[in-house]
Structures are given as C-alpha cells and as structure tokens.
Design a protein around this nucleic acid. Structure first.
Lengths: 349, 349
DNA sequence: GTTTAGCACTTAACCCTATAGAGTGCTAAA
DNA sequence: TTTAGCACTCTATAGGGTTAAGTGCTAAAC
C-alpha cells in the first residue's frame, strides 16, 4: 500500500527528474516538497518506493530515478490538472487558423505544429469513417495510349493514376471491364473490394481480356492507395535529439524507423486506443528495445459524422507528461473544431 | 612544380587517410609506398607538399591530413582506374533488374540502391527533356461538385488533382475557361505557362468568372507540380553518420537540409555540371559551412532522345573516391541501359 | 512509533601529473 | 640527394587525490 506522502514524493521525483534529467536526491527533494520533512525522512520513504519498484538508483550512492512502473503510476494517478499556458493555446489556434484548400494540407501542417510545440516527433492521421465505400471508377483516355484511372470514394476522396496502355489494347474490352467493375464493386466498402480483387474479380476480368494482370495491377494500386490510412509525420529528426546512448545498435533501429513509413504506420496501428488520450511507456510501445526509452502519447479527435482521426507524439520516456498531454489534448480539440468547420462549409448544402 | 614522387606520396596519404581516418605519419607511409625510401625522405617530401598546401597537420607533431586542395588534386589527377568489384556490379544489375510499372518507381528505387552501395546519401532525378510542353488540360466532373483536373505534357507525364467546386459554380464559365486555357497554352513550354500565369492569364479568366483566384490556384498547383524536377533521396540519415563534431550548430543546418526537399533541390541544381561525372569538395558545394566536410559527386545519365537524368551522392570529404566514383559511374551506365529499354518498350510503336 | 540529526561509507566527476607513443624538424654524415 | 640520429612537441591514457552529492544505519528527540 502506498501512502499519501509517498504519492507526493513519487510525484515530486518524476517532476524533478523529467525537468532536469538528473537523479533526485533526498536533500533537494525535501526542500521542494509541499510539507516540511527532513531529508532523512525522505530517504526512508524513498527506500519504500524503491522496494515497491517505483524508483531505481543508477549506482549505490546516487539519487533516485523513476522506473517504468513509476512513470506508469505517475501518469495514471499523479498527473497535474493538464493545464497548458495561454501562450500555447494561442499558438495552436493561430497555426490552425490559416486557410487551406485540402484536408491533407491541414493534417500535414498539424504534424509540424504539434512537433514544434512539443519538440518531439508528431504524427497525424486524417479522420476516417469506419467503412469507406467505392463510389465510382473511371478511366479517361488522354490520347497517345495514355489513360488516367480515377477512383472516387463516398467519403469524397479521389485517387488517380496515369498509365500507358500496351500496344494493341482492345478498348472495347477495357470499357466492358470498367462497366463490370462499376456494376460489381460500387457501393462496397474498400476492404471488401481489396478482398475480391484477390478472389472473383480476376476471373471476371478474364472474360473480356486474355491477361488480367496489367489492368488489375493498376486498379489494385489505386484502390490500395485510397484504402491506406495516410498519415503525416512532423519533426522526424527530433527522435534523435535525446537517445542517451548515441553509439549503440539501437540507433540503427531508430534510423530505419525514421526512414520507413510502413514501420511507423505499424507502430501507430498497434498502439491506438479506442478513444481519448492514451500513454504508452517504454516497452509498452513495442517489443523493440530501441524504443525502451521512449513514450508514445496517442489521442483521437472526433469530427462527428465525418469520422475520427488520430494524433500522436513520440518522445523520451523522460518527458514532462503534464505539459505534453495537455498540449495533445488542447490540440485534438482545436483540430476537431477546425475540421468540423471545414467539412460543414464544403460538403453540406 | 610537383614531382612524380610527391604525386605518389600525396596519393598514398589520401588513400590511407580516407580508409583509416587517422593522420598519416612518415614511418608507416614509407612502408606502404611502392618504392623504397626512408621515413626521413618521406618527411622532407611531406614538408614540400605542406608548403604547397596539399596537406595539413592537426597539430605541430601530428601526421599529415589532406587539405581541400589535396583532395581536389587527388580527384583531378591521381585517381585509380575507377574499378569496382564484380560483386558491386552484380548488385547494381540485379537491383535494377526487377520489373516496374512507372519511371518514378525505378528512379526512386535507384536512390535507395545507390545509397546502400555507397552508404552515403544518394539522389536521383528522372530524365528530363529540355523543354517540356503542355499538351492538354482537362477537368473531369466526378459528381457531387467534385472534379479532377488533369494536365498532360508532351513528355507523357500526367499530373492530376482533385478539387471540390464552391457552391453555385457556373459550369459553362468553367468550360469556357478550360477551352481558353487549351487554346492559349497548349504547345507552350511549361516555363512559359508558369510565367503567363502571373501575366495575362488572370485577366483572360476574369472575362468568364468574377473571381479568378480559386481556379487559378488549382491550375497553378498542377502546372508547377508537372514542371518541378522531382527528385528522390535515399539514405537521408546517412548524412549524420560521420559529422565529427556532433555538437556544433552545424547539425542544425544538416537537420534542416534533411527535412526540406527544396533546400536539397537547390543544392543539386547549383552543383550539376553539364555532363559526365563531377566532384565538388567541401566549400565548393555551397557557401554553407555545415557542408565543409562533405563532398558531392554528381553524374548525368543519358537516355538518348528521352533526355538526360542525374544521380548524385553526398558523403564525407573523407571518402574513398575511387570506389565511390566507380560505383556512380557503373550505376549511371546501368540505369541508362535499363531506362532505354523501358522507354523503347512502352513508348515506341 | 515517527521523525530527525549525525556519521560512516560509496560513487562519479573533476583536476592534476606522469608517462608512453607517434610524429616532426633539423643537423650532419653517407 | 638520401638517411641516421636526436631533441622536441603534442596527444592520449592511466593513476591519484579531492570534492560534492548521495545513501543507509543508528541512536536520540519528539
């Protein structure tokens, strides 16, 4: 059982450590505490906290450092009222205030803002309805055997891809295939479409043309681009700013993470919680040891009938949680407001 | 005047230093040289080289290190026959051998291969004819006020962008504007088109609709995307692997370079030579001090009537030039071959 | 029964010094 | 012109002493 006083001491240790990065000693801590106790008492209490695994020592005569368990407990029970400064709020509102033409612009911009605010690496995903459906597929000839394939979803997203037809292509067959695609697939969720692309569609295409592969590759690539959760990253390189042990092999993993969007995507996918704000600490993020000293804060933002999006921040485990969580929280609300305006303005009558 | 023996000694110093990173002393060097001389002789010769500015000392009793001038001289006069290993050649051929659908795929892939081979940062630009012209602009309605703008160039490239029309849009006016654009601009080089967009086109558009800006923004964004030399980067983060002085403010510049494509683009633009392989050393790359310890190797590759492309490698000044240049040279040839095949297959009758 | 003062002990960080090693320049002999 | 020899310079490394911050434990104070 943890006493109230131990709570306060653990809280103070985490705050102190996250702000200075130095192990926290009993004497300094005693001065900072809201009640008057002697360093000796603090030492005793810290001993108890250590027995319970909330704090560690770096060596036998050093001050205390929060353990993963300590951070976890702090985040779950000891967080500040998640206040941010007025200044931060103004920055958020102003940077989201500029006008933009496309959803992608503001979402991409958001990743940069959030990264600047926190000075960590930030991620943003645009709002996504649960089941986006195919609402149309067209192929427009551009002359000289060039065509452009255009796919529209019922969420209003458009994906297109240019393509050069092989010689001797039977345009009538192509038209027939496109009609078939529209007959069969329009109105279906993209996930279904993807599945049927490996299932009955190839056979159907073969009715009209000998080789299904060329055309299907094109269609597949457009569909999967539309289905992919496109996310944006801001401040990639901030990941390298801390990383205490700049030499170890872990750097390799970080580098590869930074360079490969699919890895980042997996990381996010596996860490997104249903809703609200979620904090993952160290090994909770992934099995990979390279991320042991990082924490990931994810949050959803809700744009009513237009779906839910995600924002996230990846920073050092040793981060000022109250402030960072406060920023993420304020940001999700502002972003949701802004997007709701945008959607209302553009999509409603 | 530089003697033959001094040439050999400078060559040996550069080779030794680029491979070990340690200043080169007279005793070790005397053993490595192809002719038998005593360390004392080597010392005398090194003294001459230093007087002429080809080598420096890090402190009064250290070995010699090549100066920028020394590297320059080495690259210009003392390079090995630029041989690469059979293994490297096989790797290049295999990785370029996989099939691909679009030019962009292979060019982007090339940046990764080249970066892996050299372990530096690599850049690739696709082949570009001198004056690409606009060959068509269309706007296809997709329903629900959505349209897609499609631009085709005479080099066969296609750019498109989806767009949502404001309410109460006059579609007849839009059609008229599109006809006007095609009348006025088709057949003109993209550079001209860009210029006229700031010139007479806005006025012409105003004939048909009250506010020109919305539509022109769309058109402008599609045109500039088509006109932009799109380049690909592989191994961005390799730039940070060396950087002796990991703390200085120069890191900031490097970071910003890594994060901003436009900066990299400028860097390449200002360093591309007319043809063949070109090596820029240290301050020759740019005024920026952050790049003083880097060298940039650029090379063109020639795909006959389909234009010329560029590949480049940015690594430490202290790099094994013979090998790196050999790799770049082999790569440009293989890439040119591969692309020529591709173009012939797809674009010729 | 807590809390606290006092004290012995531990460790990292810093500074100083000594020493070994690699390299240079110079001089004089080969 | 080349080389052997030598005095000199500078870096890197290891060891020793000191300081500062911290701990745990014990016994007295509250």
């Amino acid at each position: 059982m943890i006493t109230q006083r131990q709570n306060k001491i653990l809280q103070a240790i985490v705050r102190q450590y996250t702000s200075t990065g130095q192990p926290v000693g009993s004497k300094h801590l005693a001065e900072k505490l809201p009640f008057k106790v002697s360093p000796a008492t603090v030492r005793n209490e810290m001993g108890v906290l250590e027995e319970n695994g909330f704090v560690n020592k770096e060596h036998s005569s050093s001050g205390r450092v929060p353990s993963k368990k300590g951070y976890r407990y702090y985040v779950d029970h000891l967080l500040d009222s998640e206040a941010i400064t007025d200044n931060d709020l103004v920055v958020i509102q102003n940077s989201l205030g500029t006008s933009f033409q496309k959803i992608d612009e503001i979402i991409s911009h958001s990743a940069d803002i959030l990264s600047d605010l926190t000075s960590y690496t930030a991620f943003t995903l645009k709002p996504e309805q649960a089941d986006v459906c195919l609402s149309g597929f067209r192929v427009v000839p551009l002359g000289n055997r060039k065509v452009i394939a255009i796919l529209v979803t019922d969420s209003g997203d458009v994906e297109s891809q240019a393509f050069t037809l092989p010689r001797n292509y039977d345009t009538d067959a192509l038209q027939a295939v496109i009609r078939m695609i529209n007959d069969q697939l329009v109105g279906q969720p993209l996930a279904n479409v993807m599945q049927r692309l490996n299932d009955d569609i190839p056979l159907r295409v073969m009715h009209y043309m000998q080789s299904a592969s060329g055309f299907l590759d094109l269609f597949d690539s457009v569909v999967s681009r539309a289905a992919r959760e496109q996310f944006f990253v801001g401040g990639r390189l901030n990941l390298l700013d801390f990383s205490e042990k700049r030499d170890s092999v872990d750097l390799q993993t970080l580098y590869s993470l930074l360079d490969h969007n699919d890895q980042l995507s997996n990381l996010l996918d596996s860490n997104v919680s249903d809703e609200g704000i979620n904090v993952k600490i160290g090994s909770e993020i992934s099995k990979d040891k390279a991320l042991d000293d990082y924490s990931l804060i994810t949050a959803t933002y809700d744009v009513d009938q237009y779906g839910k999006g995600i924002i996230a921040v990846l920073g050092p485990t040793r981060m000022p949680y109250s402030r960072t969580i406060g920023l993420v929280n304020a940001f999700r609300q502002e972003l949701a407001k802004r997007l709701l305006n945008f959607y209302r303005h553009y999509y409603d009558s």
